Simulated assay, not measured.
Amino acid sequence: MYIRCAFFHGRAKPGQEQAFTDYVRERLVPLWTQFPGAQEVRVLRQVEADVADPHYEMVLAVRYPDQAAIDRALASPVRAESREVTRGLLELYDGTVFHTVFKADEYPLAGGA
């Protein structure tokens, strides 16, 4: 499996934390969950870390079966729409955004849990 992540390295602007969260949930998640080929969409919010920097306000992680599915999603109209809508989110945010793709292996937990 492959996981494409968008790392939001930085922080929501002071006083805009809830607006940032609401914008993601109301405007972007409905688009991200429509990406063709996506098998799972996770929005990760940093709660704590053992270092002060880097801070990630959010990490978007979308699971795909293969690179071809990622390529289809990136070329899709819904992805283009999500990029446009993301511009509004960036008005609530101080930092940078970058993307990376991970090849992921999954292992069952010991004891079948």
Rank of each mutant, 00 (worst) to 15 (best):
T100Q: 08
A113P: 00
D94Q: 12
T96R: 06
V29Q: 04
A6D: 13
F20T: 00
Y2E: 01
R11S: 15
Q16T: 13
A110R: 02
A69H: 01
A110I: 06
K13A: 13
A19P: 02
E40L: 02
Y23P: 11
R79T: 13
A113E: 07
R87G: 12
H55N: 07
A12I: 09
H55I: 14
T33G: 10
Y93A: 12
A68S: 07
V59W: 12
A68T: 00
H99D: 06
A12V: 13
P54T: 09
T100H: 11
F35H: 12
Y64L: 04
V29W: 02
F35D: 07
H9F: 15
D105G: 03
D22N: 14
Y2M: 08
E40P: 00
D22A: 07
W32L: 06
A75P: 10
M58R: 04
G95F: 13
D66A: 12
Q67S: 01
T86V: 08
V47L: 15
Q16Y: 13
P54R: 01
P65N: 09
P14A: 13
V59C: 10
V47Y: 07
F8L: 13
L90W: 06
A80F: 13
Y2R: 05
A61M: 02
M58N: 07
R4D: 05
K13V: 11
Y56F: 12
V41F: 11
P30A: 07
A75V: 07
Y23T: 11
D94A: 08
A6I: 09
R87W: 06
P30W: 07
A75T: 03
Y23Q: 05
Q34C: 15
D71R: 02
V78R: 01
L31H: 02
L74S: 04
P14N: 14
F98Y: 02
M1R: 03
S76D: 02
P54N: 12
F102Q: 12
E106Y: 14
V41K: 05
